[in-house]
Design a protein around this nucleic acid. Structure first.
Lengths: 197, 197
DNA sequence: TCTAACTTACCTACTAGTAGGTAGAGGGTC
DNA sequence: GACCCTCTACCTACTAGTAGGTAAGTTAGA
């Protein structure tokens, strides 16, 4: 009943999602086709339709899995007993890892293509951003409470600034193939929003 | 010999660029077709190919015109005899105007699709970002010189943080249809990077 | 023997792009 | 003023290739 596959095998379904995820993160949802995935996996397009009836369902599964994994990573950061500032650094490092794989954030990419996406995917993308902003807000509240952070305005708006700022830093740094560029922007962004040094 | 059209008419070429520009900014370069533009203009696809041999050439013209217009707006800000802080506010307002038209920055959108674009377009996108970062860097240097801004690190990195931050704020705010969200992020971003209040 | 996981063989719609033709404006020439 | 020429800006009609999607049949394992 859970999302576990029937057998113990690696699972074609997961391999489809892995390939499609990489294609969306590098080329966009409108920049890849069922034929691309099928060719790479070594099966036919028709077999893809067995696992995912349409591109829309594939997209839903993609965003769902990505959001789930991202949440797990946020939980892992929370479990690390880090101070608020270290939590934000760990959060930015998640984005840096995406860039190192020559990818854009899945939901950042889909945000660009938002107008062309099926309704279910749109909703899921907003939920991804909401989840992230909520988490960042909580960290900023924590930082304000323990006085390690100083800022004017709401923690909610500050969280939105960090979220958008990191997505944008990723968007711009990727064409340059420049991780240092991203890291410099991320560091200054977070320092600025949370009250530096 | 110059790019002026032969007669005094409004120009089909410009109308094609207007329509294609809006489609790229809302749906992406891979999210529209020659047929879309042709239908909206009321001419045939073949006529489009008369004005722009291929989608690649249309894309080149699009980025070229956009970059040119953006540069004109930066020059207009420079001509306004504003203080450095007001210049950055005016710069952010350019982005807000884009969002009010329910659009993404043309080059921000194309940055997402970067991997799928023809080489000439790729180069032009990097040049757009470089131009913007250079301009922002000059404003930050000016602000540091007149002591209206205080920041650690290079003005170049600070400029990159603002550029990426604004692109990302646009990217995330657009699905929410929320200009206030963008403006809150832009204000906090710039305040943070340039040393608030 | 049932079923999950495929296959072949197709379909319709759409993609960018091309070949070749035409209406009409403008100009020069006798 | 009739004739011709050239040019711009379109047109109809087509191509090859790709998009997402489907119906029906095959295979392999519990």
């Amino acid at each position: 009943m859970a999302s576990t596959t029937t057998s113990a095998e690696i699972g074609t379904r997961e391999r489809i999602l892995d390939i499609a995820e990489r294609l969306v993160q590098t080329r966009g949802f409108n920049g890849f086709s069922y034929a691309d995935v099928a060719a790479e996996l070594g099966i036919t397009k028709a077999s893809l339709h067995y696992h995912f009836p349409g591109k829309s369902e594939l997209g839903d599964a993609l965003v769902g899995r990505y959001t789930e994994r991202f949440s797990e990573q946020l939980a892992r950061i929370d479990a690390g007993a880090l101070n608020p500032r270290a939590k934000l650094a760990a959060y930015a490092a998640l984005y840096a890892d995406v860039l190192r794989a020559d990818r854009m954030c899945l939901c950042g990419m889909l945000a660009a293509e938002y107008e062309t996406l099926p309704p279910a995917m749109r909703d899921a993308i907003l939920r991804f951003f909401d989840d992230n902003q909520d988490w960042l807000e909580a960290v900023m509240e924590e930082g304000r409470a323990d006085r390690s952070m100083r800022f004017e305005g709401t923690a909610h708006d500050g969280a939105g600034t960090i979220l958008g700022g990191l997505e944008g830093a990723l968007l711009v740094a990727r064409p340059y193939h420049d991780v240092a560029r991203f890291e410099a922007a991320a560091t200054r962004l977070i320092a600025g929003v949370t009250g530096a040094g």
